[in-house]
């Protein structure tokens, strides 16, 4: 029976508030002294120096990948990062050519370009109240 289920029998249903309270109280946390005694027993049974765990016991790459992804915030965060990375690559590869060539022609003076000053000196003088 799952804990969330309530017994259909009369006694079980009537007792459910008491059972629920005890379930919610959870497990007791063992004191440091008890933990020390238990670990001392473990050490007496096997007083060998600690060994590295066998490679076959290590978590597989899927488990480790999932741990890294959890650290980053799970699948949604990783998907967002991947999308951003792809967008950056795309912008680098597919930069607009006309803009690139126009800039290059301006810098090396090879193109037939003219610079037009759309705001005259008189405009600035009028704007600053000199006229």
């Amino acid at each position: 029976m799952k804990m969330t289920e309530i017994d259909k029998d009369k006694d079980g249903a009537a007792l459910e508030p008491w059972f629920a309270a005890m379930r919610e109280a959870g497990n007791a946390a063992p004191g440091d002294d008890l933990v020390a005694r238990v670990l001392a027993d473990a050490g007496e049974r096997h007083p060998l120096p600690a060994l590295a765990i066998r490679r076959s016991d290590r978590p597989g790459w899927r488990v480790r990948l999932r741990a890294v992804m959890d650290e980053l915030g799970g699948w949604p965060a990783v998907a967002g990062l991947a999308t951003s990375a792809l967008a950056g690559v795309w912008i680098g590869v597919a930069a607009p050519d006309p803009l690139t060539s126009l800039t290059q022609e301006y810098l090396d003076g090879s193109g037939e370009m003219g610079v037009v000053d759309v705001l005259t000196a008189e405009f600035f003088a009028a704007d600053e109240g000199a006229l």
Partner: peptide, 8 residues
Amino acid sequence: RAYAAGDG
């Protein structure tokens, strides 16, 4: 298994 091999 690791404990039995001596892993504290």
